[in-house]
Design a protein around this nucleic acid. Structure first.
Length: 596
RNA sequence: GCCCCGGUAGCUCAGUUGGAUAGAGCAACUGCCUUCUAAGCAGUAGGUCAUGGGUUCGAAUCCCGUCCGGGGUACCA
């Protein structure tokens, strides 16, 4: 039951009867009444003045009067300037609660046999270094969007394209061969991805030193960058890899394996997962074939130096290289192959790429290329473009070591959560194991909420010293409210208070009504989050709801309320709020603790 | 140079298809725990919505110019 829909229809009818106006739905502007005025739903009457030919006040009066007579749930109205504030009967709000309480999956649409299938690509790491804060934003967004689409009744396949081949991993391989001394995760006790990342940094160190040395000998910088022994060594490894040299392939496999073991741990900590993983090493050749097919069919062209290009000037873009003059593939080549394989593997209705906004141009081009190659879904791909995470010191750069490592950050967060919980003495009654689990829940709740509550499009600033808070508009605040509710419900059960599932009508306080109104907005919020791919919409909704609940909690007693009907109503209200915020937060990948 | 994105309180961010007096949190200051969890609640203070025009009954929101910041820009990914 949707109050806006009811009123919309009634307003339409009223306009017709009063002014003979066939209004379309976007002409009718409904909004939630501002807190400072009496009422629940507000109709903006300015658009109708030219039909009523009266003042805003008179028009609003006229419509208000009509609605009062024609709509049951409208109990009263008032007019302020051109705004018609409608007061909705409290029994309507109670029906909303009744409905929400009776459905465990309130506001959530389950997928069906013939639901649309969305494939969400996210994470997409290179295998030469561990994950950092930028990847965290990517992973959390990708996971959350997947959950949100699921809640909107879509079938979802979460996928990851692992960039497991290329010059970057060869750099780590080269460094390991040269200076590794047989170091392994086992004999060093280091996490595999960190170990490989160490050699990537090691490579860069030597490479830079070599360039400096060459430049000192009078060679130009550009030349030096191409002649340094390290880069020649790495390129040689790449060549050998492509030629399937056994020893090189073996080393590549081994080091990638180390990285995957490390990634698995990080993914698990972040609570993200994938239904299907693609590897660049298995898709880039498919991409190459597609490009060559395009060349045969005259869609692309070859330059004198043997490189292959696409001309996108007609589409308002530039020329784009697809195969280098030495025949090797570029990033774009691989993405074409991956796309082809995915659509062969799944009946995809919507392909979503969760990739940073630095690649906006890349995906614009990809869409056109796929289209030219005859894939009818090419134009439909959606690049979910998110902004960069910046540090107070500026942009993160892997090679310069100015990154916030994902594993370090998570552990640091857990430490802060642990210390704070101990300081507050909150979890003393739990076993050490359960307490530890809760610390992690809180830590991840803080981190995830912090990242997901902001508009994904915008760059965001992360200050390791200050950004993570546990008070105010934060994940832990919402978790805390949930734990409070569970505590009340536990106490009710302990006192053998059973909840009567039918709500008795009675008086409603303002705070109680605010919460009911907010609950009624949940289904629409889930829908909006789905159509806008927006975890932030869900996060902000949960915060508003929880804030209102805490005000209610502060002002009203629940268990010691003498009026049994009221007590029952408040228990149902509490349970429903708990259920709704759990649903919402789960869409952000945030778990809710029973106690904290 | 050209293209794209952004600029809202000291800081981090909300702000629905253009609607009422632009909202939260943090930081600062003040109250509230013998009563269901004070990771809470209530209050004070804090604004030229970068800037100049335009459209409109009405603009943080739409259009144009300027300034500032970020990203991209033909053999990096």
């Amino acid at each position: 039951m949707n109050i806006d829909k009811i009123i919309l229809d009634a307003v339409k009818k009223a306009l017709n009867e009063l002014y003979k106006l066939e209004a379309n739905e976007n002409q009718i502007q409904l909004q939630n009444t501002r807190k400072d005025f009496e009422g629940d739903v507000t109709l903006v009457v300015f658009p109708f003045l030219r039909f009523s030919k009266k003042t805003p006040e008179a028009t609003a009066e006229e419509i208000g009067n009509h609605l009062l007579k024609s709509v049951d749930v409208i109990e009263n109205y008032n007019v302020i300037k051109g705004f018609l504030n409608l007061v909705i009967d409290k029994t309507f709000w109670l029906t909303v609660l009744q409905e929400a309480y009776s459905q465990e999956k309130y506001g959530i649409k389950l997928s069906e046999e013939n639901s649309e299938l969305a494939m969400i690509e996210y994470s997409s790491p290179n295998t030469n270094k561990p994950l950092h804060l930028g990847h965290i934003r990517n992973n959390l967004l990708g996971f959350s969007i997947s959950e949100i689409l699921k809640a909107n009744g879509k079938k979802v396949v979460k996928t990851n394209i692992v960039n497991d081949r290329g010059i970057h991993i060869c750099k780590s391989m080269y460094a390991w061969q040269m200076w590794g001394n047989g170091k392994t995760p086992e004999n060093s006790g280091m996490k595999g991805d960190h170990l490989v990342g160490e050699f990537y940094v090691e490579f860069d160190k030597h490479y830079k030193a070599e360039i400096a040395e060459l430049v000192q000998k009078g060679i130009s910088k550009e030349e030096a960058e191409n002649q340094a022994p390290s880069i020649l060594g790495a390129r040689e490894l790449l060549r050998k890899w492509e030629a399937k040299d056994e020893e090189t392939v073996q080393l590549w496999k081994t080091m990638n394996e180390w990285v995957y073991e490390g990634f698995d741990i990080t993914y698990k900590k972040l609570g993200v997962d994938f239904d299907k993983i693609y590897y660049e090493s298995e898709t880039y050749l498919v991409g190459k074939e597609e490009v060559l097919r395009g060349l045969d069919e005259g869609i692309f062209y070859r330059k004198d130096d043997n490189s292959v290009w696409a001309d996108l000037t007609k589409e308002g873009l530039d020329q784009k290289i697809l195969l280098r003059s030495d025949g090797t593939s570029v990033y774009m080549t691989q993405d074409i192959g991956t796309a082809k394989m995915r659509f062969a593997d799944f009946a995809i209705d919507k392909m979503v790429y969760v990739v940073g906004n630095e690649q906006n141009y890349h995906f614009q081009v990809l869409a056109h290329l796929l289209d030219k190659l005859g894939f009818e879904w090419g134009k439909d791909l959606y690049h979910f473009s998110y902004g960069m995470v910046e540090l107070p010191s500026g942009k993160m750069k892997s090679r310069e070591g100015t990154v916030v490592d994902a594993d370090d950050l998570v552990e640091e967060m857990v430490n802060v959560a642990r210390n704070m919980s101990k300081e507050l003495g909150k979890l003393d009654s739990l076993s050490a194991q359960e307490a530890e689990k809760t610390y992690r829940m809180i830590a991840m709740g803080a981190l995830k909420y912090f990242i997901l509550k902001v508009d994904p499009k915008k760059n965001m600033l992360f200050n390791p010293e200050e950004s993570i808070d546990f008070n105010g508009n934060t994940g832990p605040f919402i978790q805390y409210t949930f734990a409070r509710i569970q505590s009340v419900l536990r106490k009710a059960a302990d006192n053998t208070i059973t909840i009567d599932k039918t709500i008795q009508s009675g008086s409603l306080s303002d705070k109680e009504k605010d919460i009911l109104k907010r609950i009624s907005l949940f289904p629409g919020t889930v829908k909006e989050a789905g159509s806008n791919y927006s975890p932030a919409v869900i996060a902000n909704y949960c915060y508003e709801l929880v804030k209102e609940y805490n005000q209610f909690y502060h002002d009203h007693s629940i268990l010691s309320e003498p009026d049994m009907d009221k007590r029952n109503f408040r228990l149902i209200l509490s349970a429903t709020v708990g259920n709704v915020i759990k649903s919402g937060m789960n869409m952000l990948g945030i778990e809710m603790p029973e106690r904290m």
